[in-house]
Simulated assay, not measured.
Amino acid sequence: MGSAMNNNAHADSNNDFQQVYSVAKSKLGSPYIYGATGSNAFDCSGFTSYVYKNSLGIKLPRTAQAQYNASNKVSRNNLQKGDLVFIGGSTASIYHVGMYVGNGKMIDAQNRGVVSENINAPWWNVVGYGHVDTND
């Protein structure tokens, strides 16, 4: 029973991902402004919140830490496109979030603006991954 549900969820999440990715991609190059939530400038959690709200109508918590706390944790091996990538000192001190888009890359809002970049960059520490429940 569990595997049938997973297969259905995966098909649905792929559809969901296309919608989320389309919104995220459309914002590449937007400037970073601390505290900004769109639609023309973003901070990291403002960006992920904007993308989910404007693609699937899902409201995420406002900060990267709160988004981590509210997400369904997944391991690196179970990371799927559309999942959130959390960066910080530890799971209790998360200061950055991006959205995984496949091939080891995420789209995130950081000081160079909204960019696509590798999740495993030498200048930060990935502390966890979270799946956004799209079934609510």
Rank of each mutant, 00 (worst) to 15 (best):
M1E: 07
M1Y: 10
G2N: 15
A4M: 11
M5P: 00
M5V: 13
N6R: 14
N7W: 11
N8K: 11
N8Y: 14
D12L: 13
S13H: 12
N14V: 08
D16K: 00
F17V: 06
F17C: 04
Q18H: 07
Q18E: 13
Q18F: 01
S22R: 14
S22M: 01
S22Q: 14
V23Y: 12
V23W: 13
K27Q: 15
K27A: 12
K27S: 09
G29F: 02
P31V: 11
P31R: 14
P31Q: 11
T37M: 09
T37S: 08
T37V: 09
S39Y: 05
S39N: 12
N40C: 01
F42D: 01
D43W: 01
D43Q: 04
C44N: 09
S45Q: 03
G46V: 04
T48Y: 01
T48N: 02
T48K: 02
S49M: 14
S49R: 10
Y50N: 06
Y50W: 08
K53D: 08
K53Q: 15
N54A: 06
N54G: 04
S55K: 04
L56A: 02
G57R: 06
G57C: 05
I58M: 05
I58H: 04
K59Q: 12
K59C: 02
K59P: 00
K59Y: 02
R62K: 13
A64G: 02
N69F: 00
S71P: 01
N72H: 14
K73Q: 13
K73M: 09
S75M: 10
R76C: 01
R76Y: 14
L79N: 06
K81L: 09
K81C: 13
G82I: 02
F86Y: 10
F86N: 04
G88L: 05
G88W: 05
G88P: 06
S90K: 10
T91G: 01
A92K: 11
S93Q: 13
I94M: 07
I94E: 03
I94L: 06
H96K: 06
G98P: 08
G98I: 05
M99H: 09
Y100D: 01
Y100I: 05
V101G: 03
V101A: 02
V101Y: 00
G102Q: 07
G104P: 10
G104Y: 08
K105P: 00
K105E: 13
M106G: 01
I107E: 13
D108T: 04
N111V: 05
G113Q: 07
S116E: 15
E117W: 09
N118K: 14
I119V: 14
I119Q: 10
I119S: 09
A121M: 15
W124Q: 13
W124R: 15
V126H: 11
V126T: 15
Y129E: 03
G130M: 08
H131N: 13
H131P: 04
D133L: 07
D133E: 12
N135K: 13
